[in-house]
Design a protein around this nucleic acid. Sequence first.
DNA 1: TGTACATCAGTGAACGCGCGTTCACTGATGTAC
DNA 2: TGTACATCAGTGAACGCGCGTTCACTGATGTAC
Lengths: 240, 240
Amino acid sequence: VTVAAGRRARARRGEGERLREEVLGAARELLAETGSEEAVSIRAVAARVGVSTPSIYLHFPDKQALIDAVCEQVFAALDQRMEAAAAEADSPFEALRRSGMAYIQFGIENPEHYRIVFLARSEQDRSADRQVASDVFQHLVARIQACVDVGILVGEPFVLGMTLWAGAHGLTSLLVTKPHWPWPDVSELADRVVRTSGLGLALYSRLDPVASQPDADPDEVADAVQEAGRAMAETLRRLG
Amino acid sequence: VTVAAGRRARARRGEGERLREEVLGAARELLAETGSEEAVSIRAVAARVGVSTPSIYLHFPDKQALIDAVCEQVFAALDQRMEAAAAEADSPFEALRRSGMAYIQFGIENPEHYRIVFLARSEQDRSADRQVASDVFQHLVARIQACVDVGILVGEPFVLGMTLWAGAHGLTSLLVTKPHWPWPDVSELADRVVRTSGLGLALYSRLDPVASQPDADPDEVADAVQEAGRAMAETLRRLG
DNA sequence: TGTACATCAGTGAACGCGCGTTCACTGATGTAC
DNA sequence: TGTACATCAGTGAACGCGCGTTCACTGATGTAC
């Protein structure tokens, strides 16, 4: 926990809001350095900014409000990254893939921010979070809807979204929480996870429901898989 | 934080180890109730057992050792559940699927234990954890190896294992950290995620590497998908 | 141009709390003679 | 059968720490007259 170099110059009249931004920035930095909500104390944030502890309360009613504000910024940054990545693609499925990669990339680059936003227990009342988080999810659902529209995915976009989210989040959170694990090449693994989820989803959702039963006849399953693969290929050719 | 009913009876000579088990059990309970490492204090554990605070130090050198011992138990329980689930299957691929479902189920039933074991930042020095965690992972790799042996999956079991783990862990950790999210039917979603990961992995690993390039020709990709689906179906028929 | 005054942007000291850990101790239990 | 004593299983009180939060305050900045 580093203390600011000198005593911060006092803001002029009407510029009190400046401190708010500085506090938010310092909290974000401390979070990135320590990686746990508990480690970011009001006192540490104040010291980092170069201001006395009670000054924080001029702009945030309590500690939770400060943390919430940081989470909001993190969600917004993630959303922006994913949207930008998707915008570079020339097809809906590719857009989905790129946004998935951007998600994982964001987590890798900001492990501690990712941790508090997606790995900390979310209490029932953090409505700000919920709002912005659901922006991220709404955009995912929209990208999936585009894939459904062109026929590359079939099914209910909300549920498809959960499945894809689970895949990307799974890898990201493992990377974030187990940095000492003997990971193979990370970007290759990310690519693999994203493609596996996408292809798996495309295939699974085309599968005859009968073939998904635990007691399905093996030959029937085989036929269903082959047919699903054929149908998927046909869609790809049509779109290509 | 509940306090034990009465003062606990003192152990007889040579039965001092009994307290160790009681402390471990109380720590496990408190963890399940509060769900955060910080909330499980030495003082609370002692109170729950009905013993004075310094007594804990008779059996654990410090708080970290106590938490580590609890994690070890949780890993062991998870491993046991997955192995038992796999044992009921009559084919390697089905064993893999069942162990995946058991993993998610375990997380849902023990969200707070899951949280500290898989969602808390793991420091470099928790070697006990690493040991037991890798038991769980070794068993997963062995099950995947069995699938590779019969030809239903192709590739390097370690990397395949990461991908599957990411899928199951992704859903589980989302369920654990975002209980207020508007989840659809959870067991159906779990089934979907596990099957999607399995099928996706089987398909993806059979895909001609050329087709996985970002700039691959769409028709080539379509052909590769169709061929992979056909090859997968053939394997399923052969095994069925 | 000068001055009284309201407002704004902060500050210093203190509060009570729960925490991990240590230390010198106590008193029951078993054992040697 | 009785007694001195070592050992074992714990205890009570205290330590120093960092935390979130509150309260009465200060002093610079701008404005009204």
